[in-house]
């Protein structure tokens, strides 16, 4: 028997209601479904009393617990919302960083291409200048070598010519020629007065 049953029986006893008892010792009533009027009244009152007591003494605790639970849940919701916002912010930052990385990558690639183009251009210009210098220098050296070779050749020819002249002249100057030269000189000087 539950508490309600006990309270009902107790109410009936207090009201002087008679109960029957079967052979097994069980209390019997006049209806299998509805209690007696007194039982109904007392039961209702008891129930109201109990509910009233529960409401009076248990309600605040329940309310307090519910409020605490609500507050805790709210906190959890707030924390979750904050976490969500933080995650969203972080995601935004990541997306921004990713975007920045892409921009930086594009910028670096662009700068690298510009730098490469500049280096290539400068390299070509420098190479062309060096080629021009080498050509100029080579032409000058060739001209110098040609001039030097010409000078050396002329000097050698002159030296050989001098030697040949000395050799030929001295070889042809026999005594008769010497005397002829002297006589010619005397005649020329004598005639020059």
């Amino acid at each position: 028997m539950n508490v309600l049953g006990i309270a009902t029986v107790a109410g009936r006893l207090i009201a002087g209601e008679e109960f029957g008892v079967d052979s097994d010792g069980h209390i019997t009533s006049h209806s299998w479904l509805l209690p007696d009027k007194a039982e109904l009244i007392w039961g209702t009152l008891s129930s109201l009393l109990i509910f009233g007591l529960l409401w009076k003494f248990g309600g605040p605790a329940i309310k307090k617990g519910m409020a605490a639970r609500t507050e805790r849940i709210q906190k959890e919701l707030d924390a979750a919302a904050a976490d969500k916002a933080a995650a969203a912010t972080e995601a935004a930052e990541i997306r921004q960083a990713k975007g920045d990385i892409e921009a930086a990558r594009a910028r670096i690639l662009g700068e690298a291409e510009e730098q490469a183009a500049l280096v290539l251009s400068e390299g070509r210009a420098r190479l062309e200048q060096e080629i021009a210098d080498v050509r100029t220098r080579t032409s000058a050296e060739i001209a110098s070598m040609g001039s030097r070779a010409g000078d050396e050749l002329r000097a050698e020819i002159a030296r050989l010519s001098h030697a040949a002249v000395d050799h030929v002249v001295k070889g042809s100057l026999d005594d008769a020629t010497q005397q002829e030269l002297i006589e010619s000189f005397i005649s020329r000087v004598g005639a020059s007065a």
């Binding site: 002159a158 002249v165 002249v169 100057l173 030269l181 002297i182 010619s184 000189f185």
Partner: peptide
């Protein structure tokens, strides 16, 4: 060969040496 005569400041050069030098 030939003769070189110097009289005072006057030089009369009829030498082969001088002709060879001129030719050179």
């Amino acid at each position: 060969g030939g003769v070189v005569a110097t009289v005072g400041d006057t030089v009369i050069d009829g030498s082969v040496r001088t002709r060879i030098d001129q030719l050179k």
